[in-house]
């Protein structure tokens, strides 16, 4: 089994963190994992993405040309990857900022993660809402494992941050 995921959005949406949380959780569940960021001459307001592979076997390339799943957090990212990937099994799309027109193949889960995050009181948790939504569908790692990673990653003394991320994770997993 190998699951190759591309996570994309704009700088500041917690794209790298989303990937790290997912990869760390998979590692804790004894899977092979790789995480590869997009890096270089990135510009503010442009796209940022990372690539996460989770497998039962050693992983060859951390670079993902053919993704199994995409988590897309804004419109430019959708444009960028729509034409570049084939045979995708799942699209998770932030409908607050991107409209999934002309997507061919694969299941589409679209929810307004940014608006939902605002509703929870912190726009920054849109990423974890999307992760919850993705995991409910893919069952790649247990939500409890993700919770433990969130606790581990949160800076000391930020109980409120842990609480709201936890809330976002569970709410994301309830979305239909």
């Amino acid at each position: 089994m190998i699951e190759r995921i591309i996570i994309a959005g704009s700088g500041g949406q917690g794209i790298m963190l989303l990937g790290k949380v997912l990869a760390e959780a998979a590692m804790l569940e004894n899977r092979f994992v790789t995480w590869l960021p997009s890096y270089g001459a990135e510009v503010r307001g442009g796209t940022a993405h990372c690539m996460v592979a989770v497998s039962d076997k050693e992983i060859g390339s951390p670079y993902i040309a053919q993704a199994d799943s995409l988590i897309i957090m804004n419109a430019p990212s959708l444009e960028k990857f729509k034409s570049r990937v084939k045979k995708v099994s799942l699209w998770v799309i932030n409908s607050s900022l991107a409209k999934p027109d002309n997507i061919k193949g694969g299941s589409i889960l679209q929810h307004p993660f940014t608006d939902l995050a605002l509703g929870l009181g912190n726009i920054k948790v849109a990423n974890i809402l999307a992760l919850g939504c993705f995991l409910k569908y893919k069952q790649l790692v247990r939500l409890d494992t993700v919770s433990s990673v969130i606790k581990k990653f949160a800076p000391a003394g930020k109980e409120e941050l842990i609480r709201i991320n936890e809330q976002a994770l569970r709410k994301g997993a309830e979305l239909r």
Partner: peptide
């Protein structure tokens, strides 16, 4: 650069 940038356990 790939090995430098990527994360693994």
């Amino acid at each position: 650069g790939m090995l430098g940038q990527m994360m693994e356990p």
